[in-house]
């Protein structure tokens, strides 16, 4: 069976929610019913068939061809299977995701992987603001799973993150890991202002020396054996994280934010 493929007929003028187009929902529908499904389109609705040309039949493998930054909520709450996006995706990609894989060729919008509990997301381009962060009013951002951003991430990446791994090959915007509760974030590029502000627990692994708030204590340089295990778990990933050099077990360890519990650690390769 070939992957169920949705080819965008034209660039959408309004934001559209693709929350319904996830494997567990589509698997229950007959092929004839799929084009008739209604998606939220601005403040109204649009039929799937009007927006996409559909081919293929395997609902556990979905492909969106011809992406757009207006395609929101791709893979929202998906439980299993695979979604491939050829092009850009909008906000809330993998929001509340519970399992499965999402691969995006292009870039994604805000709140990617927010509230995700499990699963695997790779983005070849950049991620918008609030990557793996909590929605307004919520206490927890991403709570499990792994997100790999090959490009840059926007501001507030990992805000109130609770568990899981966020890997950023490019740079992260301001306030990365702010109010972080637990989990791991690694950034190979630069980081911005306000990094780790209000960080309570969790691990932030950096290549470049960050501009940390004064409420972090420098605990000296250490060789940390556990990093070996961490790197090994990344060995099968595409890109830079698969090939971290052996000497990168030596890190400077900074602990804080003392203004908020102070059990977070920032590890900087030396």
């Amino acid at each position: 069976m070939s992957a169920l493929t949705f080819r965008l007929r034209h660039e959408p003028q309004l934001r559209v929610s693709l929350a319904l187009l996830v494997p567990q929902t589509l698997a229950r529908l007959s092929p004839a019913a799929i084009p008739e499904m209604e998606l939220t389109w601005g403040s109204g609705a649009i039929k799937v068939g009007e927006l996409f040309e559909i081919r293929g039949s395997d609902a556990s493998h979905l492909v969106f061809e011809g992406g757009s930054p207006k395609l929101d909520r791709i893979g929202e709450a998906m439980a299993s299977g695979e979604i491939i996006v050829r092009g850009d995706a909008g906000a809330y990609l993998g929001h509340r995701m519970a399992g499965g894989t999402i691969r995006v060729d292009g870039s994604v919008g805000a709140y990617c992987a927010s509230g995700a509990r499990n699963g695997f997301i790779t983005v070849d381009g950049d991620a918008g603001d609030f990557l793996a962060a909590a929605l307004p009013g919520e206490h927890r951002g991403m709570a499990g799973g792994l997100v790999l951003i090959r490009g840059d991430a926007g501001e507030r990446a990992g805000d109130r993150m609770r568990r899981g791994v966020v890997l950023i090959e490019g740079s992260a915007g301001d306030y990365c890991a702010s109010r972080m509760g637990a989990g791991t974030i690694a950034v190979l590029g630069r980081t911005g202002a306000g990094i780790a502000t209000g960080m309570r627990r969790g691990t932030l692994l950096l290549r470049e020396t960050p501009e940390l708030p004064p409420t972090f204590n420098d605990c000296g340089v250490h060789d940390l054996g556990f990093l070996q295990l961490l790197y090994r778990s990344w060995a099968s990933l595409p890109g830079g994280f698969a090939a971290l050099p052996g000497n990168s077990l030596t890190v400077r360890r900074l602990v804080g934010d003392l203004g908020n519990g102070g059990k977070g650690e920032v590890l900087v390769w030396v």
């Binding site: 939220t40 403040s43 109204g44 929605l135 307004p136 009013g137 919520e138």
Partner: peptide
């Protein structure tokens, strides 16, 4: 104001 999740979780479309 305190419960945006209450609003996100129960939408009444136009």
């Amino acid at each position: 104001a305190m419960l945006p999740e209450d609003h996100r979780g129960d939408r009444l479309p136009r």
